[in-house]
Every structure is written in structure tokens, then in C-alpha cells.
């Protein structure tokens, strides 16, 4: 079985992270922003798995499990907030939230 260079895995994680970052910066629909955040979290998990594969350790997978837990909790809270926002403003446009002077 031929081996894969570590930097290719890390570069893939970087590309996915940057794509998610572009999504967060450019989209105005809050559902898309949350999806892009998911992409970014997934990319960081991929980086941990690549590191685990580099050293042949199990700690990277444990860190991935923690990221998975974080993503699940974040999505639950974020979707609850989206539902509340839709009830209040009847839109998913994040620029309406700028009138919250806080």
C-alpha cells in the first residue's frame, strides 16, 4: 500500500476550511452561514485525523470526537436561534440583525 504525503491531507483540510470561510464571509442567508461554519469545523476535524494518521496515534480521533460533540451542540443552539430570528423578523437575512443596538 503506497503512502500519502501528510501535507496533501493538511492542504485538503486548509482548502475546505478556506471554502467554509468564504461562505461565512459572503453569504447573507443565516442558514448558509451555519452550514459554512459546519464545513470549517469539519475541516479542522480532518486536520486532526491527518495528524493522527501521521503519528499512528489514537489521540487525533479523540480530538475529532470532541469536535463532533462541539458541532452537534453548536448546530442545536444555532438552529434554535434561527427559528427565533425567523419568528421575530420573518426573514433569514442576517443584515436585519444590525438594528440590535447592543
Amino acid at each position: 500500500m503506497e503512502t500519502i504525503p501528510t501535507e496533501h491531507g493538511l492542504i485538503l483540510a486548509g482548502i475546505l476550511f478556506v471554502l467554509g470561510f468564504i461562505g461565512v464571509l459572503t453569504r447573507r442567508n443565516i442558514v448558509f452561514v451555519l452550514m459554512s461554519l459546519e464545513i470549517m469545523l469539519n475541516a479542522s476535524g480532518l486536520a486532526f485525523i491527518v495528524a493522527a494518521a501521521r503519528w499512528g496515534h489514537a489521540e487525533g480521533q479523540i480530538m475529532f470526537l470532541m469536535i463532533l460533540t462541539l458541532a452537534a451542540a453548536e448546530v442545536a443552539v444555532g438552529l434554535g436561534l434561527i427559528i427565533q430570528m425567523y419568528r421575530k423578523f420573518q426573514t433569514v437575512d442576517i443584515s436585519v440583525l444590525s438594528e440590535m443596538n447592543g
Partner: peptide, 9 residues
């Protein structure tokens, strides 16, 4: 990253 030259186990 491209200066990092190691294979995965």
C-alpha cells in the same frame, strides 16, 4: 506546508 515532507503511517 509544502516544506513539510513526511508520509503518513
Amino acid at each position: 506546508l509544502s516544506s513539510y515532507d513526511q508520509n503518513m503511517a
